[in-house]
Amino acid sequence: MENRIEKKFKELKSSNKKALITFITSGDPNYKTSQKIMQTLRLNNVDLIEIGIPFSDPMADGPTIQRSSQRAIKSGSKLESTFKLIQEFRVKEKKIPIILMGYFNPIFQYGLERFFKKCRIVGVDGIIVVDLPPEENDYILRFTKKFNIHNIRLLTPTTNKKRLKQILKYTNGFLYYISVMGITGTKKPSILEVEKSVKEIRKMSNLPICVGFGITNRNQIKNLNRFSDGCVVGSAIVKFIEEFCKGKVTEKKMLTSISDFLANLQK
């Protein structure tokens, strides 16, 4: 079976569109609300959904996603419930690719074969393991191949040419370019710098390149999409969830806000 990620990028390319990828943490603030947010994302035609596996020590994440992770753990979010979330979502939605993003320890403790098998069964298409560099890729290579889960790798402003080659060897689906030196949701990317890097990467790879970290508005996306194949929005969406958790807005209002925000990004 063709992986949904490839299919999606082919479609986008043929209709000359760019991908909008959104991130939420599984179980933030709880299972039921997560499910509703997933539906909101679907109804607003996001192209790919990235779901964060909560971890107690999310080293590469800024405060917004750290708090999101903590809320999720507190609400009882576990890998098992994350898989259930996706399985339920897949009942209605067969097309949108789903990517799991997480840190290695929870995945490792679950059991690698068990994890990737389950990914296949519930309809996960790709995985980003934040703290598993290409040097340590052997841990998962066998299973990503066996279960046809795309291994999506992060490229950063610190990645040099030599590393780029090494990373490209182990990547499929698309490349995720981290736009800033730092953690999620803090700094704003410099469009010019990102453009330079993306163009360099293009010389070495035909994979679609999406840009993430620090992306919050339509203008940025427009500018980035001049040369990228799509953008990832994470913390900006999670902030709506946080507002809801603080009791500032109702669940309904939060979902409407996310809808409006997404519609605006796609204008």
């Binding site: 598993l132 340590e136 992060l154 990645t159 040099n160």
Partner: peptide
């Protein structure tokens, strides 16, 4: 690889690797 037997290694985000 920075291993002591199976322990140790280098499990960090790409930004830190270089």
């Amino acid at each position: 690889q920075g291993r002591f037997g199976k322990f140790g290694g280098r499990f960090v985000a790409e930004t830190l690797m270089p």
